[in-house]
Design a protein around this nucleic acid. Structure first.
Length: 602
RNA sequence: GGGGGUGUAGCAUAGCGGCUAAUGCGCCUGAUUGUCGAUCAGGUCAUCGCGGGUUCGAGUCCCGUCAUUCCCGCCA
């Protein structure tokens, strides 16, 4: 027989009672995390969102309550009325925030019973969690775990800190529609059919890009939004089909003004975990980041920069290297400190690893008691020694070498750098290293189409310094390749190797915009159909403007110290974009489809 | 679209060609006055993901498939 709550109200949470509360009459409510039954004395660990408090029920003093306590099982929902006592000498529990006290119960109400959970919730000190798919199916149980409770609330705090910060700078929070038309980002859209307009579809926003620019044209001057975004692309550990970003746009802004907003925002958010970021953030151009770290989002929590051996190997007879150099490729290396003892097995594994990024092979030099190298036979001892010195390696180090196309070498060694850091535990997890990466390229060459695509998006402004090059490349057919060298007023904010924000200064003049469409191979007509309303708007006095978008989940992952985006979302989807709790996406019945005028092919 | 890992009781794991598939936790019953990963005694729980193949014999080897996860492509 279950009890009713009646007018009973809890006086404290299960995480807040302390020594100073001793003697207070309290009412606590929560879930039974654990019961320890000693016959005439029963202990209950009572858990709510704030923590765990030990409840003591004694047969001698409270027969009724004790009778009920005996019947309790895990996850039963109870209310207790009792008095706070200091714990006896030697029975304090340092692992509980409330471990100095306990509540002696006089009245116990069983508000609800519970089935035995399909998996054990997180216990203090427990390691082996149930598999993630099971926990996702019973997300409401998984969310009871202290870790996830903490993450969800940390996320709420982060979002609130962001709102306070943006509001303090005079930005206006503006909601934009979820049902809109396809925007020009490169991702696949989620499509929503319309009953009223049979055969027509809305698209969910991949980001509010165009609308925030429209807000600038509308004279709103400073816009921000905590915006949900949708992309129908494959998932990753830090990617979900729907995610949230802080979307910001400001008028009459140059890069420096945007950087200051980004820096201030991340600084405010990181203070939530007691971290003070440098002011201003360190900066690096895109080209420098790629050259030194092989990545446009370098993790600066450890050194191990890429070393260029290209010039040392120019003119080599070794055919694989010679052909790389002939094709304007490069040869670079990583020095792994103190790892001359890497086994053949390890270097083989690392070779397999870099092959995933398109590298042909991984050459190595080990400066152990003797110097050994996979290249010893083909290059000779003297050359090997020269390469090791050029790479900055010392006795005891290993040198890992990749040759190939510039982009391949960067991708392979950039990834290998992270892999080695992980294997060798080189990352100090107490560090928080932000970086502004600037001067992103304006265009990316697309091997498949033979055309240049927008690296950021088609409204990104070229750098003033590269405007001449930009014009020449478009107006002179023979100079088209110069597009690859044009830099944009585009930037990313990187934190601990995660791309946490990105943005640009936009084009606000229609002449430059027209040139850009031409560069992208978009005819005037196509541009018209795709962005007509926006092009119209551009002609009515568009102010210079720019902004950025910051990933809320990625930022929260860093705040919470997790590498799994699902740990910072209340209801995430699996890697195959399914919700295991709701079992979505699901079928709809034929009547619904008919009403929408949709037929499923096949 | 491609590649790697995982799938054995409610949960986490072991078993990797040969007796009745093992251990811990959970769960159930009982004992128990200070525990907090309680303890003790007893008990319960398995189409070894699914389908096919090899073999005298398959949880174990092979092929396929499904689920999940990580990565490449993709996602500015």
């Amino acid at each position: 027989m279950l009890d009713t709550l009646g007018s009973l109200e809890k006086t404290h949470s299960c995480g807040e009672l302390r020594e100073t509360d001793v003697g207070k009459k309290v009412v606590l409510m929560g879930w039974v995390a654990k019961k320890r039954d000693f016959g005439v004395l029963t202990f209950i660990d009572l858990r709510d969102r704030d923590g765990v408090t030990q409840i003591v029920v004694s047969e001698e003093t409270d027969l009724d309550a004790h009778e009920k306590a005996k019947a309790l099982r895990g996850e039963y929902v109870v209310a207790v009325r009792g008095e706070v006592f200091s714990r006896a000498e030697g029975t304090h529990n340092k692992r509980l925030a409330t471990g100095d006290v306990e509540v002696h119960v006089h009245e116990l109400l069983i508000l609800n019973d519970a089935k035995t959970p399909p998996f054990e919730l997180e216990k203090m000190g427990s390691q082996n969690l149930a598999s993630e798919d099971l926990r996702l199916k019973y997300r409401y149980l998984d969310l009871r775990r202290p870790t996830l409770q903490h993450n969800i609330r940390m996320r709420a705090k982060a979002v609130r800190a962001i709102r306070e910060y943006m509001d303090g700078l005079g930005f206006t929070e503006i909601e934009t529609p979820i049902l809109l038309k396809s925007t020009p980002e490169g991702a696949r859209d989620f499509i929503v059919p319309s009953r009223i307009h049979t055969g027509k579809f809305f698209a969910l926003p991949q980001s509010p890009q165009i609308l925030k620019q429209i807000c600038m044209i509308a004279g709103l001057d400073k816009y921000y939004q905590i915006a949900r975004c949708f992309r129908d692309e494959d998932l990753r550990a830090d990617r979900q089909p729907e995610f949230t970003q802080l979307d910001v746009e400001m008028s009459f802004a140059n890069q420096e003004m945007v950087y200051r907003v980004i820096e201030g925002m991340f600084t405010a958010v990181l203070r939530l975990i007691g971290v003070e970021l440098p002011n201003p953030f360190p900066r690096m151009t895109y080209a420098e980041a790629l050259r030194r770290y092989g990545s446009d989002k370098p993790d600066l929590r450890f050194e191990m920069e890429l070393q260029d051996l290209t010039e040392n190997l120019r003119g080599t007879d070794f055919a694989p290297f010679a052909s790389v150099l002939e094709n304007k490729g490069e040869i670079k290396a990583l020095v792994v400190k103190g790892k001359a003892d890497y086994s053949r097995k390890t270097t083989d594994e690392l070779q397999e690893f870099v092959k995933r990024y398109g590298a042909g092979a991984l050459a190595w030099i080990k400066l152990g008691e003797e110097t050994t190298s996979s290249l010893l036979k083909v290059l000779g001892e003297a050359k090997i020694a020269e390469l090791a010195t050029a790479a900055g390696a010392e006795k005891g180090d290993a040198v890992l070498i990749v040759a190939g196309k510039k982009s391949t070498v960067a991708a392979a060694l950039g990834a290998l750098r992270l892999e080695v850091a992980k294997r060798e535990n080189l990352i100090d997890r107490s560090l928080y290293k932000p970086l502004l990466v600037t001067e992103f390229p304006m265009f990316e060459y697309n091997d498949e189409t033979g055309q240049f695509d927008a690296a950021h998006h088609p409204f990104t402004s070229p750098m003033d310094e590269d405007l001449e090059k930009f014009r020449t490349a478009i107006e002179d057919e023979t100079q088209h390749h110069l597009l690859g060298e044009v830099r944009a007023k585009a930037y990313d904010a990187v934190l601990n190797g995660y791309e946490c924000a990105g943005g640009s200064i936009r084009i606000h003049q229609k002449e430059i915009q027209a040139l850009n469409f031409k560069a992208l191979g978009l005819s005037a007509e196509t541009a018209r159909t795709r962005f007509g309303f926006f092009l119209d708007a551009l002609e009515y006095g568009t102010p210079p403007h720019g902004g950025f978008a910051a990933g809320i989940e990625r930022t929260c992952m860093i705040l919470c110290g997790t590498e799994n985006i699902r740990d910072v979302m209340a209801f995430p989807k699996t890697a195959s974009a399914q919700d295991l709790m709701m079992d979505s996406p699901g079928d709809v019945d034929n009547a619904q489809l008919k009403e929408l005028g949709i037929k499923i092919a096949g």
